[in-house]
């Protein structure tokens, strides 16, 4: 077992990931992923039925950066704070040195001056690889139980 992808490393990774998004530091978000990584947000309804539609499906750093540009420059939206609570990852290590993991998440949304709401609840289904800079995501699929999105989802989960 590679210690670069051990329990502490993955949980620390998720803590940093949450801190980055909750601080609104979206420019740093693609760096959590490998250059050709896949990032998806998909309703449990579709995931369980084997249907391919996602609410976002971004392939690689280029598309992740396009989303960041969209958030900052093109998507009109009422701003909101995000607060991620990510559970301990359930890890499995593979002989090729990669690891798969599942971790529950809850994301709360608060409009400035407003009331906090449960915005999106689900689980991350992840594939990690070790790199010299620590664990990176080869894939993160956010499968959400809260199938009715509260109006719009602008920021990454």
């Amino acid at each position: 077992m590679s210690s670069a992808l051990d329990q502490a490393a993955i949980d620390r990774f998720n803590a940093r990931y949450a801190a980055c998004l909750d601080a609104g530091e979206f420019d740093a978000w693609p760096d959590f992923f490998l250059p050709d990584a896949m990032y998806k947000i998909v309703a449990r309804e579709n995931y369980d039925a084997g249907l391919p539609l996602c609410i976002l499906a971004l392939e690689g750093h280029g598309m992740l950066r396009d989303r960041v540009y969209g958030i900052k420059n093109t998507l009109y939206h009422a701003p909101y704070y995000q607060r991620h609570v990510i559970g301990t990852a359930l890890l499995e290590h593979h002989t090729d040195g990669s690891a798969t993991a599942e971790a529950n998440y809850a994301v709360f949304r608060t409009r400035p001056g407003g009331i906090s709401e449960v915005f999106n609840v689900g689980r991350y289904i992840d594939r990690f690889k070790a790199t010299p800079e620590g664990p990176k995501l080869a894939e993160r699929i956010c499968v959400f139980d809260s199938e009715m999105i509260l109006n719009s989802l602008i920021y990454p989960l």
Binding site: A43, E45, N46, A49, L51, P52, L53, C54, I55, E147, M148, I149, L150, N151, S152
Partner: peptide
């Protein structure tokens, strides 16, 4: 062919 379903509640 069906690709999938997305739902949103708009106030």
């Amino acid at each position: 062919t069906l690709l999938g379903v997305n739902r949103q509640r708009i106030p």
